[in-house]
Structure formats: C-alpha cells, structure tokens
C-alpha cells in the first residue's frame, strides 16, 4: 500500500484552510500534515514537516506566494501547487518560471483540486485548463505575412513612414516636411495600401523590419 500524500496548506484565510483540511482529509490517500498562514511560516513548517506537496496561495500578507515559491524550491524537494484567485496567465507564467508543479484556481477548487494533487504527486504537471489555453495562445505570435521590402515607396513616403513610426503627430510631420496635414494623411493612406496593412502598429513593425527606424 502506497503511503498517503503529505500536504502542507498555506493560506492566510483561516476558514478556507479548515474547509480545505476537511475536504482533503476526507480522501484517504491525502493527509494534511500542517497549515501555515504566510510564506515565512510555510518555510519553517516545510523544514519541520517535510511535506510532499505544498498547496500555496499567491496573495498573502507578508511574504507572498511567488517569493515563497522561489524559496521553497531552494530549500526542499517538495512540489508546489498554487491554489489562487488569480486567473491571469501572467501569474501562471511567472509561477512556471519559478518551478511550480501545478496551478489551480480557487474558482475550480471543488472540482479540480483533488485530481490536481494526485497528478502532481505522480510527478505530472497540472495547470487549469482555461489558463493553459490562454497561455498557449499568448505565446503563439503568427508571423504576419512578411511585407516585401521593395514596396515602391517614394522618397517622400519613406520620410513620412519614418516620422509616423517615430510616433510623431500628423501636424508635427506636416511642419517638419513643410506640407499640409491633409497631404500627410493621404501619404499615410497610400503607404498603408502599398505595404498592405490596416494598422499603425503594422506600419511601425514594417519600419522596424526594414530599417527605417532603430529599435
């Protein structure tokens, strides 16, 4: 018979901790060996109790979850499972960089948590499915069709493009080149047609890629 998973609960909310303790202890292969209400306390308890998994909240007074995660990974072998309200992939990204093994939202604690604990104990990684999807999406940047660098821009259009990419207003461009604002607008429209784009951001990228401005 496999020994039960030793788990340390770290959350500043007492009622939540006791609820979690009851929920987790009701599963026979999980045992809550201790509780802590801050990052500092968690580090002490880990040295003392040597849990297999640390269930860690992110927002806590004193040392927060992210800092605690880094320190835990420095001092112990324990796997860390984040249990948090933060449904932003940025937090997930940061936690993954610091070596987290799982990331579960409190919004899904009732349905996902037990499964996640078991998977993490088995050496797998468990990440909230919605968040994982967002993370993957945010990492995928489809390379916009590369514009032909020889797009027949006239010298004047190249000047206008450069000034637009540097973030100048139409009025400033008009003053610099001693032309009217209307003329700047029509140059801009023509440049967008020629390099085949609909947005200012794409013009800036085009200007960067083709060396009109430096990064």
């Amino acid at each position: 018979m496999k020994s039960p998973i030793k788990l340390l609960l770290v959350d500043d909310h007492t009622v939540l901790r006791s609820g979690l303790r009851m929920l987790l202890n009701s599963h026979k292969d999980i045992v809550v060996v201790g509780e802590a209400e801050s990052g500092e306390e968690a580090l002490e308890k880990i040295k003392e109790l040597k849990p297999d998994i640390v269930l860690l909240d992110i927002s806590m007074p004193g040392m927060g979850g992210m800092t605690a995660l880094q320190k835990i990974k420095e001092i112990s072998e324990a796997k860390v499972l984040m249990l948090t309200m933060h449904a932003d992939e940025e937090y997930l990204k940061e936690a993954l960089e610091f070596g987290v093994s799982g990331y579960v939202l409190k919004q899904a604690a009732d349905t996902e948590l037990i499964q996640a604990i078991k998977e993490v104990a088995n050496g797998q990684v468990h990440v909230d499915s919605g968040l994982a999807q967002n993370l993957v999406k945010s990492m995928y940047h489809p390379s916009k069709q590369k514009n032909d660098s020889d797009s027949n821009l006239t010298d004047r259009e190249k000047e206008v493009l450069k000034l637009i990419a540097l973030g100048h207003t139409n009025k400033e461009i008009a003053e610099t080149l001693m032309i009217s604002v209307k003329t700047v607008e029509s140059h801009k429209t023509r440049i967008m047609e020629k390099i085949n784009c609909q947005k200012r951001s794409e013009m800036v990228r085009y200007a960067l890629e083709n060396g009109y401005i430096n990064t």
Binding site: D11, V15, L16, G19, M85, K106, D110
Partner: peptide
C-alpha cells in the same frame, strides 16, 4: 473571494 471559496469547499 476567500469566503466564497470556503463556502464552495464546505
């Protein structure tokens, strides 16, 4: 948020 989470878990 924490209270609601506690409620859900309870």
């Amino acid at each position: 948020g924490q209270s609601l989470t506690s409620l859900i878990i309870g």
